[in-house]
Write a protein that binds this DNA or RNA. Sequence first.
DNA 1: CTTAGGG
DNA 2: CCCTAAG
Length: 401
Amino acid sequence: MNEVKEDELSVSTLEDETIEVEHLFAEPKTEHVSVDGVLSFGDASLGKCLHIEDFSCGFEYGLTNNGGLDSNTTQEGEDLQLDVLDGLLDEIDEVDDLDATNGLSNACECEDFLLDIEFAENATKLDLGRSKESCLGNSSSESQSPGLSGSSNGAVGISESSSVTILESECKNDALNKTATCKLHGILVSKCGCRPPDEDSIHATSLELTKLDDLNSDKNLLACGISSAGGEKRLRKPTRRYIEEFSDKKLEYMKRGEKYSAGMRRRALTVIPEEKSLGGISVPAVSQFRARLGRPKKQKQVPISEIESDKELVSSESEDDGVTKKISKKHDRRKHQRMWNPSEVIKLVDGISEYGVGRWTDIKRLLFSTSAYRTPIDLRDKWRNLLRASGAQKPTKKGSS
DNA sequence: CTTAGGG
DNA sequence: CCCTAAG
């Protein structure tokens, strides 16, 4: 997971990063962005970049700290890391879409653009523990996150607050990670900094996204050897079709998430054949509904296992389910098949434990309000799959055979 | 309209 | 994921 390719170049890395960003800003000619726009936002962007750097470093530090130091790895740490990663993934995901959208019609989509971004950010913050929601008042969804998210709150807060201090001393992450984080926070910053849908912020964001895309592409290349995207081709066919194809790329990226769940499930099955044990998780669930079946085991298994599986899978081999995206493309019937990353599964399980199984709409509205995809039916299907994977018999007793 | 079940 | 039947 941590390649630490630029381990010692910590400080210089920052500079590089900044320079790169600058560079990007300097030559957005690839896009059909008008020069005026570039000039106008160039200055602001610079300052923004700095902020981003700070943030990213601090952020990354938090990650690295939790992930790297096994000695101090508590469930909370795991959760934190997980959430953060998921947040990043989600963010990237959303951003990709946004970017694509921008590419095809950056002129008119401004509002939607921003809205989406805000949403994404919102979601991320929720995942992280919604530390500061003052920036935008549109936080329509109150995170219901019970125990898991709650635990991560403190950790995240720490990492953020202490970001400035450690940013220069402890930046030991690969460029990719940093970049991702950079983008993430770039959005955050841009959002918080410029509430109104200014063209500046939009452009800046899109640019950052572009850069990110490139890097992501690189990552994908490294990981899977699939050459998918460049920065410019994006403009070519700005059809919806393209967007879908484009998102395939991120699917690659998201596969990690899938991996999590896969590993988790496997482990759950292996280690805990029965769902009896639910001691670790404090489920604020209603006693009525908590009579559920295989859910508890999953919930408790998720945080720890998925991390482990993540490391193993990612480090050892990077892929197996490259098929998913391809098939999805072939048959328009099955749209995209968004992979369920662990955090989503957790949210789902939480929601079920909270509102009871069958209340898919409620769960969707309350816990997945930020996820445009994921219809209530999807939730139900996922749950069904989880049950099946858990080897739970549907009728009779719940798998306690 | 939402849920459950099957494809 | 999609579709359909049933509440």
